[in-house]
Amino acid sequence: MFDNLKIMWHQGKQFIPDVTTAKVPGIFRGRPVISNKNVDETALEEICPTHAISKGPVRIDLGKCTFCGECAIQFPNKIRFTSDYKISSNEREKLIIIEGDENPILVNPDLIRKEIHRLFGGSLKLRQVSAAGDNSCEWELNASNNVQFDVSRFGIDFVASPRHADGIVITGPISENMAEPLERCYHAVPDPKIIILAGTDAISGGIFADSPALDRSFLSKYHIDLYIPGNPVHPLTFINGVLSLLRKI
């Protein structure tokens, strides 16, 4: 008993008091900024393993970027990754960063369905579906609810059954073998419901985009409510993305 109390005492305060303003340690690769410097754009475009970079003007699509950092290493004057982890949006095009653009990425409040705030504003239960995810995004989603990030303080939780859920969070590029279980899981969630894509693999297929082993037809059938980039998504990116969708921040 006293041991337990001692252990608890020694932990001190672990939780991050404000997850909307917390700073991430080190050299985190968050929202990139592209300068107006002239560089060999073709060479720059060529570097990217997932065709996230396009030219004229130079753009980076965070829905495709694996955040490998190579472009910034080779063209440090052109591309710089900031530690801004708030990179989620409910508009796919907003994930594309254009040369000279230093504005934050936002969730557009006008496009959020009315019932989302009304029904899920106080409590959002999510069912996670890993559809060929590599267990890195899954890992970070679990971390979102450890004692430090503690996403459940906002009433946001992962639940065991789709029937208890208000929506699904998809990770992974969606393999052919997971296409049907994903569809079934989605249908088991009662209406109204939301779909969140967590991680680059889910948003665009990432490095697997042109694999013949995928079946991403699910995504063209339903409305996607939130895109959360990252490889994997950082817990703070996830938490802030969902909070903006619920209009809590």
């Binding site: 694996t66 955040f67 890992w139 970070e140 490889n231």
Partner: peptide
């Protein structure tokens, strides 16, 4: 987090 300080990614990607 130390991985992130070293290489910018918590799971050492990159």
């Amino acid at each position: 987090n130390y991985f992130q300080e070293w290489g910018g990614n918590r799971l050492a990607k990159g």
